[in-house]
Design a protein around this nucleic acid. Sequence first.
DNA 1: AGATATTCCTGGAGGC
DNA 2: TGCCTCCAGGAATATC
Length: 277
Amino acid sequence: MPELPEVETVVRGIAPHLKKRRITQVELRRADLRVPFPKGFKERLEGAGITGISRRAKYILIELDTAETLVIHLGMSGSLMFREAPFKKHDHVIFTLDNGKKLIFHDPRRFGLMDLVKDTKTHKLFAHLGVEPLAEGFNSVTLGASLKTRSGPIKTAIMDQKVVVGVGNIYASESLFQAHISPLRKANSLKKSEISALCEGIKNVLELAIKSGGSSIKDFVQSSGKPGYFQHSFEVYGHTNKPCLCAAKHGILKITPLVKKITQQGRATYYCNNCQK
DNA sequence: AGATATTCCTGGAGGC
DNA sequence: TGCCTCCAGGAATATC
């Protein structure tokens, strides 16, 4: 479910409520998510003080005073919310804080995961991750270098967390639309100017989405329980067979360009073959 | 090595 | 109403 803007929205939503609190109780309502919980998960967390909350790629990082970091990935359908009992179906983990508040991890599809790690730089989940798209290190030079060796489609490349983190299926289509680049282009065929445009497209789309509290298609909710509203700003995602925005920009055309839906790597891609080349 | 297909899981939507 | 198939914000793994 959540891509970078949604995870960032969750982090911003829960951070003020977690800051300087202590975890007093952890209830695991099943033995695993996508993977088993690490050994001693509950015991290692209970009593730990929270010293920081941040995000790396699509992972939520909760730093503890035990020299460990609680890592949470929301997968496709995960959410974190402060709620009270009664618990619902798919409420898999309940963290109780020293002020009595309960942070509930809810994840119907169970593609999420949790781990406790000593060093998030070298840990297996993080070692291969590429650059953060909203950090200094992401620019047309670094993106160009990663794309140089890739002959697969550009859409697949920007969704690869080794190239740039946080861009998922929605924002890949939206960024390419912004940059006027076809998702079918071979990644290593992009010109310098196109790589720059793609960089800007990715940054703009992600930043705007964060400002909107993320996108809610099916079940994404912020930690407040409210949906995000960036889905109303989608320009191609989900717009199958609707007129592309370029129709208006370029005046009356003989044939109105329509947004196409295709499949790449088993995932839906939306684009306009009139304005994306 | 790099590209592509498959897999994990549940629920909602749409077809018949 | 019910049953069936397909599809969904991710990403590791297997296969070519």
